[in-house]
Amino acid sequence: MGHGGEPRRTQAYDGELGAAVARAQDGDEAAFAVAYRLVQPGLLGYLRGLVGDDAEDVASDAWLEIARDLGRFKGDGAGFRGWTATIARHRALDHLRRQRVRPRASALEQDVLDLPGPQSTHDQALESLSTEYALELVRGLPRDQAEAVLLRVVVGLDGPASARVLGKRPGAVRTAAYRGLKRLARQLGGGAETDQGVTEDGPSTLGEST
């Protein structure tokens, strides 16, 4: 597991993203769409971890702000991912604050509602379940660990960028991510589930189709 001194994490498409952002800042609408498509999956995944089901709504709010403030941003593709994650996080926290006033559906109900419908393909069904499962695991972590893990594996930020998004020290974020991942690894490999019997050997890799 990588620790602090690792080189700045770049995703495969950061170069393309950086170029798209620059063109969008010059007014290129198509370039903005490219940036959107590159960033949205990570953004949405992160928000899912924070607010669960309301992730799409919060993401919409975030993109409004991103689109409006695009001219202010300075940086490369990886920086753009950090900048957008920060905006998304603020929107998520606002959302959570508002939500405290309203009762929320329990986690279990939400899972039921999100089950793939009969018209989904088999793969989509699996994918959806996989997402739900992963999401549930991550949301089961302590908040600081969950966020650190999400920023690292879903948004793809390095230690310093994650620390900046979270407003914490890089060391604390690194530790939280490490602990969170360790815990998840145990849960996934050691049979976190169920009341039903657990196989002694968990699968060594996930995603095997059966």
Partner: peptide
């Protein structure tokens, strides 16, 4: 018990959580 290899775990989580983000209306 088998443990998930860190790299594999991160990839799995990342892929799983990023899935299904395409929504043309939102775009």
């Amino acid at each position: 018990r088998a443990t998930i290899e860190p790299a594999g775990l991160e990839e799995y989580l990342g892929a799983a959580l990023r899935a299904g983000a395409v929504d043309p209306a939102a775009e």
